[in-house]
Amino acid sequence: MGEEISLDHRFQAYVDADNKVEPKDWMPEKYRKTMIRQISQHAHSEVVGMLPEANWITRAPSLRSKLILLAKVQDEGGHGLYLYSAAETLGISREELLDDLLAGRAKYSSIFNYPTLSWADMGAVGWLVDGAAIANQVMLCRTSYGPYARAMVRICKEESFHQRQGYEIMMHLAAGTPDQKAMAQDALNRWWWPSLMMFGPPDDQSPNTAQSMAWRIKRKTNDELRQEFVDKTVPQVEFLGLNVPDSHLKWNDAREHYDFGPIDWEEFFQIIAGNGPCNKERLAARQKAHDDGMWVREAALAHAKKRAAASASNALKTSAA
């Protein structure tokens, strides 16, 4: 018991000195579980997050935009993969992680339970959702767990063009026909508040924040990141000539930040509880892909085994000859 306390303290001191924790290091079981939960949630978010945007690939209004969107969604798949890879260093398999997701035990970012209803959503999602994600991700490049931090560095490199593409679409629409401008404003209206909710509940309602901050898993709090995001994004909305759907939004000279209106946390908690517009559809899509793909995965493994057996037996024959 005494030794356990000492290990916890040494671990904390190690992390306090900004060292990276690596897969072979001792770590408190709670740290390991927290890391698995956080990394896998992030991975699930990337993969589920492919769906709302993949929805519009076949309807992209130009060849160039089709290619760009397809590449973006593919990148997200790749990011999911880097993150599953990081999670697996903690002693959990991709299979278990997928099981948890499909059984509803694991979470993914609530934002992906909203529907993408117009082409302008491709703009809004890239600009706002990826924008919010980037804020979080840049912070995570300094997270204490080595494989996660390295995955985040890789992801951040690829992420910046996603946000720019989204904004480009918004600029194009905002400067287009009245229909296009209305489409852009409508998308902004629907995605603004959910994007703010992406940063999670307010600090005083976030049970895990304190420990996560202490272990340098999180480097900034939910409210800090949310405020940064609002401050950065409002000028971008104004540049588009659109309106932020928040009548309380106001620059506060004293604080040197934007004051913004109350968030409907009831909506957020309903989404978390599974009542969002697309929760069931998103999971059903992942479940179907998994189920439909079973025979394919089995076949590939069976074939690999046959080939391995064949070369082993060839090796035997050769050596016997």
Partner: peptide, 8 residues
């Protein structure tokens, strides 16, 4: 896209 049998 998003519906394959395995992410890879």
């Amino acid at each position: 896209c998003g519906h394959g049998p395995v992410l890879e």
